[in-house]
Nucleic acid binder design. Structure first.
Lengths: 218, 218
DNA sequence: AATAATTTTTAGGTAAGTCTAAAAATTATT
DNA sequence: AATAATTTTTAGACTTACCTAAAAATTATT
């Protein structure tokens, strides 16, 4: 049996390793999970013994295939629950993370299978992140950061890099949601801000914002 | 903060005390929770210190108002999730308990409020048990055990006492569900079995079954 | 009422997951 | 290449929730 804590460590290693393939440092995990490096060392040893991770002292850690499968399962659950919260229970996209963090640990094959069907097999969560399918396959769309789009490019908002409440509230305030059409009008070389056309209005966006918004060229 | 384990103990004390009002013995809790009496002693001391229970050595334990409120909150969540599983995710009534045991511990005011609304404010769960409202009020219907009904009484199935998978499967097999109309045809004094008319057919029901089926006279 | 049986509590120990502080290894700097 | 800074690990301790075994209290039986 895998514990809740183990699941959380595995998830962190997965995310920090970009899909769990490259070595993740003890300190990176500690920072991400708001715990101490010594606790992380203890846990990665344990994960390694249990066959969920490969770990060599001072060399960081990677997930094994088993570990990666577990991580993907948790991510799948997390994202399906996020869809449920937004679509069925009228949560806004800045409120869902904390609840999904709890729901992702509920253990029941049938539950997640039925939830998936009930939501009509969504492919992306409310932040635009892909939902792994039952077999763990993740289909990613070819998205770029808004900061990388060129002048006159037309595109559609497909996701966020930062999903902090503050950032999402900023987007709400400016009527930018998933699916919103944007057009790049001007890029200011001085501060790397971007002028875009959105909802038939012009809006100036700081570099920080443009660096956290994923778009798809259209 | 209250832990998951504490919540489970509080819930057990609540159920064993019929609504948490009369003294519950250490052994009764241990049996119910499949743990040892010594563990129970430790925990009831802790619950008592935290103000959730009143406990005097060798005298058993009762819930305080605070403790009872917590128990009712957990029961509310458990039963709402059960409704969700049956109504929305096509679970059958013998599959829901174990998943609801997990879901009942998810902490989010908004979640449960919205879930309640999404389910259109159900008053009873799939076993016929009442769902406490937001303020903790529980409206119970005047139900009796089928074994207490008299010959020629017409009634409706409104709940079960035993919600074990075996019993619920027996009911399914015999096409008895919540809302099913029953009529008492004969009561056999020798073994206390009951002959009923259900779905236009006669069915002989053992005393054990009749003692676990709640009905409302109609 | 004394003894037996049962229940409950106490005492001491274990495992998981955390922490602090110190030691060891690695990486960066001069 | 030697020293400094940083990262990582080890060692030892704490908390929660559990356990076993023995002691104490309660309840039942004769």
């Amino acid at each position: 049996m895998i514990t809740l804590t183990e699941e959380n460590y595995i998830k962190a290693i997965y995310h920090l390793g970009k899909q769990g393939e490259h070595n993740v440092s003890t300190n990176a995990i500690a920072k991400d999970m708001e715990t101490k490096a010594s606790s992380v060392t203890d846990m990665v040893k344990k994960l390694s013994e249990k066959g969920y991770a490969d770990y060599k002292k001072y060399q960081g850690v990677t997930l094994t295939n088993t570990g990666r499968k577990i991580a993907i399962g948790v991510v799948r659950k997390h994202r399906l629950w996020e869809v449920f919260l937004v679509e069925k229970l009228n949560f806004s996209w800045d409120e869902i993370h904390e609840v999904a963090e709890q729901l992702e640990h509920i253990k029941s094959e049938k539950l997640i299978k039925q939830l998936d069907a009930f939501l009509e097999y969504p492919t992306h969560d409310p932040h635009g992140d892909p939902i792994p399918d039952e077999t763990g396959k993740i289909k990613s769309i070819d998205k770029i950061l808004l900061s990388q789009a060129q002048i006159n490019d037309s595109c559609i908002c497909v996701g966020v890099q930062d999903s902090s409440s503050e950032f999402l509230k900023y987007l709400d305030k400016n009527k930018i949601a998933l699916g919103t059409a944007l057009k790049v009008i001007h890029k200011e070389p001085f501060d790397n801000s971007v002028t875009i056309e959105v909802n038939s209005k012009e809006l100036i966006i700081s570099n920080l914002i443009a660096n956290n918004l994923f778009v798809k060229l259209s």
